[in-house]
Design a protein around this nucleic acid. Structure first.
Lengths: 231, 231
DNA sequence: GTTTGTGAACAGATTCACAGCT
DNA sequence: AGCTGTGAATCTGTTCACAAAC
């Protein structure tokens, strides 16, 4: 009844022609994984409100705005977490999602770029559940070296590899100008960091095995502009 | 040969059964529009580098990482901007995209929530091409009222409707805690603002005709966590 | 009776491949 | 000859609808 720690039952319908080494769960849509974060947030909220009733996909649908079928399908990619006729146990499902998302343990992050955005990200409380810790900050601007933010000291970018090793850093947040971004990314990759969240509005190259996600304010605002213009 | 100012030729293949009033371009995938911002950025970069050669979809493909077919299809949703055998004119296409995206004129924005993230967004230079101007800042915390950021003064949230009217504000950026977000959104909607970019990690309701986009740091980081965990 | 998990149907987006224009 | 614009084919993701489980 407990679904902990392992991503259960990767269903393997129509596998592609067997791609060499395949340590990966077959093929989960990116949007499914992102919705998992939403489900997880809802579960935390419900639990914090003392709600202990099993949760149906129908109720989750109302809380998230996704369809109930979508909720069930999303979860079913990873296993059978519910009880038919009953629903999903709030605590159990939460734990399962933590395990799937890899947030059942803390992560150490590096921040590169201590400008306006970077400093805001340092103090942003949005690293939910305290699982994500920025343990080092870097900047290529020497005038910023040694500056303190809380208990962090800004270091030269050249120290990244060493610090990453020392603190077991596995993700980096990049908040530098577009013109510097590729060089920074190269340094991060060279330091062995495999997950990067980039805020610079530019297309960047990473080698296979390194995951690069981007947040692009320009795209968001321009999309709103489009919607307001063409409606 | 010039493609200016109007979103040309909305191709209307299989229209749905004629939905009452339809001032809208038929049905453009959201991701298509977002890629338009990427294309636009590339064009600006090329132009700033003095590149004046016509641009093929193949070259755009190399610059953006999308396929050439995708580039052509995306653009073709909005009209015929290229010349067969030649490619797309950098200046003309730029102007067409500006027009489609609605960024051929400036936009006035309000910022609500002058915490860490909010203040960073105030000074963030990422509102590309200076088309997007934050002309007013609001906070519900009275201790922040009157505080200055550059030439902006933080005002009480109650002033939003009046200020929005005065300055013709049509978009708002929301950077408040999740617990306050829905109330803030309601105020923004009541002020007649129809485009909202939300940074609060919570599901929010807006009436039809109001566009709400979200940027959720937790989801981005948790998705990286997922990728690093399940690979 | 209720709600999950899932094949099958459907809808939507991407890619193919080529006719048509320059 | 070269490159766009676009039907047709393919691929991917979502929704339907119901048998299985409780």
């Amino acid at each position: 009844m407990e679904q902990t720690l392992k991503v259960a039952k990767p269903p393997m319908p129509n596998m592609p022609p067997a791609t060499g080494h395949m340590l990966k769960v077959p093929k989960i849509p990116k949007m499914t994984v992102r919705r998992l974060s939403d489900y997880y947030r809802i579960l935390r909220t419900l639990e914090s409100q003392g709600d202990t009733e099993p949760l149906s996909s129908e109720k989750m649908s109302r809380l998230t705005g996704f369809t109930a079928a979508q909720v069930r399908r999303d979860l079913a990619y990873f296993g059978s977490f519910g009880k038919r006729g009953v629903g999903y146990d709030i605590g159990d499902l939460q734990q399962s999602l933590r395990s799937i998302l890899g947030i059942d343990h803390p992560w150490s992050l590096a921040l590169v770029g201590v400008g306006n955005l970077g400093t805001a990200l340092l103090s942003y409380p949005g690293y939910r559940a305290q699982g994500f810790h920025i343990v080092a900050a870097f900047d290529s601007d020497a005038t910023k070296h040694g500056r303190r933010f809380g208990n962090l000291v800004v270091r030269p970018l050249e120290d990244l590899a060493e610090t990453a090793r020392e603190h077991n850093i596995s993700m980096a947040i990049v908040a530098v100008p577009a013109s510097e971004a590729q060089a920074v990314i190269d340094t991060i990759v060279a330091a062995g960091i495999k997950g990067i969240l980039n805020f610079a509005p530019v297309k960047l190259q990473v080698p296979p095995g390194v995951f690069l996600e981007k947040v692009d304010l320009s795209i968001e605002i321009e999309y709103l502009s489009y919607l307001l213009t063409n409606s």
